[in-house]
Amino acid sequence: MGEVLVVTSGKGGVGKTTAVANIGTALAALGKKVCLIDADIGLRNLDVVLGLENRIVYDLVDVVDGICEWRKALIRDKRFEGLHLLPAAQTKDKTAVNPAQMKALCGELAGDFDYVVVDCPAGIEQGFRNAIAGANRALIVSTPEVAAVRDADRVVGLLEAEGFQGPKLVINRLRPAMVRRGDMMDIDDMIEILAIELLGVVPEDEKIVVSTNRGEPASADLSCRAGQAYRNIARRLEGEMVPLMSLDIEAGFFNRLVKRLFRNGTNG
């Protein structure tokens, strides 16, 4: 059985879809069989971030409605062996799917894939309920900003109430220069406040915009810092101990700890 991960945040626009596309691509590059589900019905985005928008025939709603079998609806990414996308419907809304249907679908997909990664819409209502229904692990994306962290905390609470154990944190859009001058919360601040385990830290990176423009996920670009961060996350999901990459931030507690654990450099 594969794992079903939901990527969620509460707050909108913090980088869920970007994370799903890049972590998915990176997992596929590790030789995993991956299915990405865009659960943001009505606001389909994952297809364009992946550059697969021209290949959509069927969507998630067609599958749960039984119009089409999931095998037929999946788009196979020709650039990345093993990567598949089940796109969201664009002309329906969240009520077109219910949690029971999502649970059944994710269960079936988990039988065929190593990873099923669900891109959750913003908010904590039905779209969120649908996205988490079939998942057994959760990744929380948050930027180092008050509103994003507050919403992340709320989502952690809701996930715990649903029986999720140990949701993991992905800090996105960290800006080392701002951290250095005391104008942005750092990694340790975020971990301390949210009290959940860290999975990875993605720096603010212009190349994300460029790669999204082109529909080519940044994690395939070996020179991209953010891409490196997503590749590291994929390896950690695979159980590898990968040190945080150096963001040239004054070493806080977590960095010191990591440095102590991995004495041989921090550029993994």
């Binding site: 900003e145 962290v149 005391g182 104008d183 919360m185 601040d189 406040i193």
Partner: peptide, 15 residues
């Protein structure tokens, strides 16, 4: 206080 210290304190209270 730096803006990050302010952010942390506000978050602490609101949470």
């Amino acid at each position: 206080p730096s803006s990050k210290e302010v952010a942390k304190e506000r978050l602490r209270l609101v949470l």
